[in-house]
Amino acid sequence: MENHVCPHCRTEVPQGANVCTGCQAEIEYGTPNAAFIAVFLAAALLGGWIGTNVNSTVGWIAFAIILVGGLIGCFKLFTNRVSFKRIYKTR
């Protein structure tokens, strides 16, 4: 099992943990939600453009291909992503 080092407190955290045991930073794995939104918007815009300029059916097919290809690409691109998020409270 692989361990990660928290960038905030330098504590070793085991793979699969949701919170750092040292500083309580939240740990996220995989594809960020913003990537899903970007893929959907790109698929919708390109599919709409193709549907308007070429053919409605071709636009829907292009939308589906771009969406599925983009989602598969995101999953492959962000397979090993680990993100530590901590909110610093100052007085």
Results as ranks from 00 to 15, higher is better:
89 K>M: 08
40 F>E: 04
71 L>D: 01
84 F>G: 03
2 E>Y: 08
54 V>A: 11
34 A>C: 04
13 V>P: 05
68 V>H: 07
53 N>H: 14
71 L>P: 00
11 T>M: 07
78 F>W: 02
89 K>H: 10
36 F>L: 04
26 E>C: 03
58 V>D: 12
59 G>R: 13
14 P>A: 06
89 K>D: 05
26 E>M: 11
32 P>A: 01
44 A>H: 07
51 G>C: 05
13 V>G: 01
26 E>R: 06
1 M>E: 14
4 H>N: 12
53 N>I: 11
29 Y>C: 02
29 Y>S: 03
36 F>P: 00
59 G>W: 11
1 M>V: 13
77 L>E: 02
31 T>P: 00
75 F>E: 13
57 T>E: 15
15 Q>T: 14
44 A>I: 12
3 N>K: 11
35 A>S: 04
47 G>S: 13
42 A>P: 07
12 E>K: 09
66 I>N: 14
40 F>V: 08
79 T>F: 10
63 F>T: 14
78 F>G: 00
48 G>L: 13
70 G>A: 12
6 C>G: 05
16 G>P: 07
77 L>G: 06
1 M>L: 12
35 A>L: 02
58 V>M: 15
1 M>Q: 14
84 F>R: 00
17 A>M: 05
1 M>G: 15
6 C>N: 05
90 T>D: 08
83 S>H: 03
80 N>F: 07
42 A>H: 06
83 S>N: 03
28 E>C: 01
43 A>D: 13
78 F>M: 00
24 Q>K: 04
34 A>L: 05
51 G>Y: 08
19 V>Y: 06
40 F>T: 05
10 R>N: 14
18 N>E: 10
